[in-house]
Design a binder for these strands. Structure first.
Length: 215
DNA sequence: AACATGATCAACT
DNA sequence: GTTGATCATGTTT
């Protein structure tokens, strides 16, 4: 698959992001995330997200109010917020709602579509990303599954903070859902505070989900 | 001390 | 195959 496959007129407008973050998280399912750099195009279809609210959510980084780290969350929606977790992994978020609110959507998993060889390289190229000993692809299933893996496959880090999702490097395209696809919601993964909120969204029975559904 | 994780390995079914 | 313990390790509180 190459660049000409994608229709960049399907890009999401800024209004998409300036809505309630839980609504944005749900509607991001099925959207195609693209990173375009010189001579390279990475693309994956989002299949799993989590919303982190602007208020009343003890698990959200915006809880303490604006700080250096969470500054992107308090900017206007439609940009990236990338932070490091556990000293090892990066997590990529899409900021939602108008400036000053403080909310974001964590991208937890996606289906690789384009630039799969480059994603392999970004991930480290070991058998852990399902490649055979001769470097041929065994499976693309786990390449972007899990927030740390997604960020690594797209080579995202803190330098991508505040990057707009309206180009020229990052794009989100809306191709809709397949007729038989259903979006389900459940508890978020890996948090202890506000753990019962049903703010995780995913395509039911998708092969690319990072973890099982937790009601 | 906690943290929006992921890879690995031991000990199971 | 699956599950649970353990570890790696930067940044914030």
């Amino acid at each position: 698959m190459n660049e000409s496959v994608f229709d960049f007129s399907k890009i999401l407008g800024i209004d998409f992001y300036l809505n309630d973050v839980a609504r944005v998280a749900r509607r991001l399912i099925g959207k195609i995330f693209i990173r375009k750099t010189a001579g390279q195009l990475l693309a994956a279809r989002i299949v799993e997200t989590e919303a982190y609210l602007s208020g009343g959510d003890l698990a959200s980084h915006s809880g303490p109010g604006p700080t250096i780290r969470n500054a992107p969350m308090f900017a206007n929606g439609g940009i990236l917020y990338v932070y490091m977790i556990y000293g090892i992994h990066y997590c990529a978020n899409i900021v939602a709602e108008p400036k000053g609110k403080g909310s974001a959507v964590l991208i937890r998993a996606a289906e690789p579509l384009s630039g799969i060889d480059e994603m392999m390289v970004n991930r480290g190229g070991s058998e852990r990303v399902d490649i055979n000993k001769d470097n041929s692809i065994k499976s693309k299933v786990k390449l972007c599954s899990g927030p740390g893996n997604f960020a690594k496959a797209f080579n995202l880090n803190k330098s991508n903070n505040f990057s707009p999702l309206s180009g020229p490097e990052f794009y989100l395209l809306d191709y809709g859902l397949m007729p038989d696809e259903r979006i389900i919601s459940g508890k978020r993964i890996g948090i202890k505070k506000s753990a019962d909120l049903k703010l995780r969204f995913m395509i039911e029975d998708s092969d690319y989900i990072s973890r099982p559904h937790i009601i």
